[in-house]
Computed example of a mutant assay.
Amino acid sequence: MNAQEPANYVVSPPLDGGGAVVFVPGLGGRTKFVDRWNEPGRGPVIRRAVWSEPMNVPAVDERGAALASLIDRADASDVVLVGHSMGALVCLEAAGRLDRRVRGVVVMCQYPPHRTPVSPLAELPDRALAAELDAPPHIADTAALPEYARLWRSEYRLLNRYLESYPRPMVNAPIVAVGAKDDASSWSSENLDEWHSYTTERLSVHMVAGGHQMVEELPSETLREWLSTLSC
């Protein structure tokens, strides 16, 4: 990457100026499972948005602005943004900037900002933080852990700062809010109902089995059913 270029999202496959479904991951940025959603011959293609410099951690609203700018430059329209965890908040920020270019937003495992408590995880020591995040052994059990822990703490501190900021974006498109029954960040459908405060259109709420990483096991058919409701 050219040193003059700022960190940004890289969308794969690249945006081509038409409609697009873009998935934005949360902490850790895992997106490999998106391949499973893209069954041969079945549209629309679900694209991954990956931050170009993983160890450079900008604020949530800055990431949302970067994603919106990328979509705007590609002249994409009829866009659906799908975000998991912190990625859902990035989608909220991007959608608020893109206005009518966005057809809908799917937020998974994330309460709306005013219902999300400030996280205490930023203050945990390295190993305790890795345990809380269920970090894989190739990170938790190696010399790389301190650097990853630094990144995780930075993410949580920026998240906490975002949760305490105002005003909130408003989305001029429907929102689908998805909670997981064993996830502390989304188990309450009552809290998820309050996503209605962030859209001028309709809100639908769905609950699924599993914990915070349920997105990695989510069947393609289920996701596509939610996407189809955004066309109604």
Rank of each mutant, 00 (worst) to 15 (best):
E5A: 14
Y9S: 07
V10R: 15
V11G: 01
P14L: 03
L15Q: 08
L15F: 02
L15A: 11
G17A: 07
G18V: 04
G19R: 00
A20E: 06
V22K: 03
F23D: 06
P25E: 02
G26S: 09
V34D: 01
D35N: 12
W37H: 04
N38E: 07
N38F: 07
R47K: 13
A49P: 00
V50A: 11
W51N: 00
S52F: 10
S52T: 15
E53F: 06
P54W: 06
N56R: 14
V57F: 00
P58A: 01
A59D: 15
G64E: 02
A65G: 10
A74M: 09
A76Q: 04
S77I: 03
D78H: 04
V79M: 02
L81M: 08
S85F: 04
M86A: 12
G87F: 05
A88L: 00
V90H: 08
C91D: 05
L92F: 06
A95Y: 13
A95E: 03
D99W: 04
R100V: 08
R101Y: 03
R103M: 02
C109G: 13
Q110E: 13
P112I: 11
H114S: 06
S119L: 05
P120M: 10
P120V: 05
L121Y: 11
E123D: 15
A128E: 15
L129M: 12
A130E: 01
P137S: 02
P137H: 01
H138P: 01
T142V: 00
A144H: 01
A149T: 11
A149H: 11
L151F: 05
Y156F: 15
R161L: 04
R161D: 01
Y166R: 07
P169R: 12
V171H: 00
A173Y: 08
A177V: 13
A177R: 04
A180N: 00
A180Q: 05
A180L: 01
D183A: 09
A184I: 13
A184L: 12
W187V: 13
S188V: 13
E190M: 04
E194N: 07
W195D: 08
S197D: 15
S197W: 07
Y198I: 01
V205Y: 03
V205G: 06
V208H: 03
A209D: 15
G210E: 10
G210V: 12
H212M: 03
V215F: 05
V215S: 07
L218M: 15
P219A: 10
T222W: 01
T222R: 14
R224Y: 05
R224F: 06
T229K: 11
S231F: 07
C232G: 14
